[in-house]
C-alpha cells in the first residue's frame, strides 16, 4: 500500500519535473529571441511564444489538479544536513543557482510563504491600503465599479449604435447607381464617353476607305460600332445613344475599315 503511494508520488514528481523543464526551455528560448532577435521578431511570433507558454502552464495546472497526483502539499521536506561548504553536485543540479546548502539560504528555499521580495511588496501594498482610509477606498471602489459596468454595457450593447448607423444607410438608400457602373466600365474598357483625341472627319456610313480614313482613320469606337448610325455622335460629342446594329453588317464594315487602315500603315 505504502509502496504504491510512493511510486505514484515518484511518477508524478518526475512528470512534473519534465513539464517544468519544458516550460523552462520555452521561456529560455523566448527570452533569447527577445534579447537577440528583437529586430526580426514579428508580433505574431511573439504571440505564438506566449501561447506556447500559456499552454505549458495549463498542462502543469492540469497535472497538479489530476486525481492521480498525490497532494504535494501534504509532503513535508525536512533539511537533514546543512553545510557551509560548496556542494558541486547541488550546484550542477540547480544550474549553478544554489551552490551551498547552508543555514543562510535554506529557510528561503524551503519556505512555504511567498518569496521575501514578494512579501515585501505585499507589505507595501497593505500599508498603502491602510493609509487611504475606508471612506476613500469605498469611493474608489465605487468609481471603478461604475467604470467597469459602463464599459461592459457598451461592449454588450453595440446594437443600438449599429442600428442608428444602418438606419442612416437606409436613409441614403442607394449607395450606387447601376447606370454609372455601366458608364464607368465602358469608359475604362474602350473609352466610351471620353473625348476623342483625334479630329474626326465627316464619316459617311457605307463609304469605307474614302477621304476621312486618310485623315483620321477610325478610332476604336468607330471601328467597333461602325455600321450603326451613331457615328457622328461618337466623336467629341455626348455619349452616343446605343443603336441596335445588325451584327452581320457590322462585321463587314469592320473588315473594310481595317483593310483601308493597313494601307496607310507606318511601316510601309
Amino acid at each position: 500500500m505504502q509502496q504504491r503511494e510512493e511510486k505514484q508520488l515518484e511518477a508524478s514528481t518526475e512528470s512534473l519535473i519534465s513539464r517544468v523543464a519544458h516550460l523552462k526551455n520555452s521561456l529560455h528560448s523566448f527570452i533569447f529571441k527577445l534579447e537577440n532577435e528583437y529586430e526580426r521578431l514579428t508580433w505574431p511570433s511573439v504571440l505564438d511564444n506566449f501561447a506556447l507558454l500559456s499552454g505549458q502552464l495549463n498542462t502543469i495546472n492540469k497535472l497538479l489538479r489530476n486525481e492521480k497526483t498525490p497532494s504535494f502539499r501534504n509532503q513535508v521536506i525536512i533539511p537533514l544536513l546543512l553545510s557551509p561548504d560548496r556542494d558541486e553536485e547541488l550546484a550542477k543540479l540547480t544550474e549553478q543557482r544554489v551552490p551551498v546548502f547552508s543555514h543562510e539560504i535554506v529557510p528561503d528555499h524551503l519556505r512555504t510563504k511567498p518569496d521575501p521580495e514578494v512579501e515585501e511588496l505585499e507589505k507595501q501594498l497593505s500599508v498603502e491600503a491602510a493609509r487611504i482610509g475606508p471612506d476613500a477606498a469605498q469611493k474608489q471602489i465605487q468609481t471603478l465599479n461604475k467604470l467597469c459596468s459602463n464599459l461592459l454595457e457598451k461592449l454588450n450593447n453595440p446594437r443600438d449604435d449599429r442600428e442608428t448607423e444602418s438606419a442612416a444607410v437606409r436613409q441614403n438608400k442607394q449607395s450606387f447607381n447601376p447606370a454609372d457602373t455601366t458608364a464607368l466600365v465602358a469608359a475604362v474598357g474602350f473609352g466610351k464617353g471620353l473625348a476623342k483625341c483625334r479630329p474626326p472627319g465627316p464619316v459617311a456610313p457605307g463609304q469605307p476607305g474614302q477621304g476621312p480614313m486618310m485623315t483620321g482613320g477610325p478610332t476604336l469606337q468607330q471601328v467597333t460600332i461602325a455600321g450603326s448610325s451613331g457615328q457622328q455622335a461618337a466623336i467629341g460629342g455626348p455619349v452616343p445613344s446605343q443603336q441596335p446594329g445588325q451584327p452581320g453588317k457590322m462585321q463587314s464594315n469592320i473588315k473594310t475599315n481595317i483593310k483601308s487602315a493597313s494601307m496607310q500603315h507606318p511601316y510601309r
Partner: peptide, 11 residues
C-alpha cells in the same frame, strides 16, 4: 507613336 500606334482616348 513611332511604332505606328495612335492615341485613341485618354482619361
Amino acid at each position: 507613336n513611332e511604332m505606328g500606334f495612335r492615341m485613341d482616348h485618354e482619361f
